[in-house]
């Protein structure tokens, strides 16, 4: 187990390092006029050179990279170009918002997906099964920005017009300011995200549930006269959930860097929106910091999923 862990973590670090090289190469080799922007229209060549020097942009790319790597290992991802705020600080501010969004949505989509999946699997080929599959696929087909805009249109604009100002047009209210406003601001984004992702879970649950329900021990349990609902929930669901949990881990990791659109539509200043702003301003340290942080989230989530697997199924460990 220890060997397995070490190897897995080693792979993870290798992957992150490769990503840092790739991202660095990609953005630093591309032409950049940050110094020009910072210097403003009147910026003389001297000012620009000075700014470049201050930002370390006058060094060869590989030296900049080594510098970056040296700091990154110590937990310092550099400073943003415009206000010299540490990138880690920027991430620290945006992260709670993204995590709130991801976790809340996760609760919703898990509940929705697993519930629908179980119903589908226990009534295969029934009207309910088909209806739920169609429902799931319908929302799965939505581009996230469209779903977000529609939710805003109906549940914010229309409702507010009719005098029910339940939902805000967007933005974020920190948890510190009370759970009520926090919840109010996040509910629509949660729903938007959960509806998109629930389809995958409905299908996964349905598929593995169907497999499990066909197995011998389930038949045995049934023949012993155990109540059907108990068979389904206690015996079936428990073993059917393994692929669901796996997928869940992977999705959560990916959401950290993957909720760009939802954050943009609902004006949530999370990691995604921060990154988009940074991209528009060519604020490279912030872009690289967020990309690396989001990649790390995926890597860590995958390692956790693998460990979970190895604990559940000892055969995996050998390989």
């Amino acid at each position: 187990m220890a060997m397995f862990l070490i190897r897995r973590i080693g792979h993870g670090i290798l992957v992150l390092w490769l990503i840092s090289v790739a991202v660095f190469a990609l953005f630093f080799v591309a032409p950049s006029n940050v110094a020009q922007t910072l210097a403003g229209r009147q910026g003389t060549p001297e000012t620009i050179a000075l700014i470049k020097h201050r930002l370390g942009l006058d060094l060869p790319v590989w030296q900049q990279y080594l510098h970056f790597l040296g700091n990154a290992v110590k937990g310092n991802l550099g400073y943003d170009y415009y206000h010299q705020v540490p990138v880690t600080h920027i991430i620290g501010q945006a992260l709670p918002i993204t995590v709130s969004l991801a976790l809340g949505a996760a609760v919703l989509w898990l509940a929705l997906g697993v519930f629908n999946g179980v119903i589908s699997a226990t009534h295969p080929r029934s009207l309910a099964d088909r209806g739920l599959t169609l429902f799931a696929l319908f929302f799965y087909s939505f581009p996230s920005f469209l779903l977000g805009l529609l939710l805003l249109y109906f549940l914010y604009f229309r409702l507010t017009l009719s005098g029910f100002g339940w939902f805000p047009a967007g933005g974020y209210a920190p948890l510190a300011g009370g759970i009520g406003p926090w919840f109010q601001h996040l509910l629509l984004p949660w729903v938007a995200l959960a509806l998109l992702l629930a389809a995958t879970y409905t299908r996964l649950t349905r598929g593995s549930m169907l497999d499990v329900l066909g197995e011998d021990y389930i038949r045995t349990a049934r023949s012993k006269g155990i109540r059907e609902s108990r068979v389904v929930v206690v015996h079936g669901l428990r073993s059917a959930l393994t692929p669901v949990v796996t997928q869940f881990g992977i999705d959560l990791g990916q959401l950290i860097g993957g909720v760009v659109v939802t954050e943009t539509v609902f004006s949530l200043p999370g990691l995604g929106q921060t990154a988009v702003t940074a991209i528009n301003q060519q604020d490279l340290p912030v872009i690289i910091g967020i990309v690396l942080f989001a990649s790390a989230a995926v890597v860590v989530a995958n390692i956790l999923v693998d460990i979970g697997y190895a604990v559940l199924d000892p055969r995996v460990r050998l390989h």
């Binding site: 992150l16 993957g258 659109v261 995926v298």
Partner: peptide, 9 residues
Amino acid sequence: SVPFLLVAI
């Protein structure tokens, strides 16, 4: 592992 949409943007 790379956040696809971010890097694409």
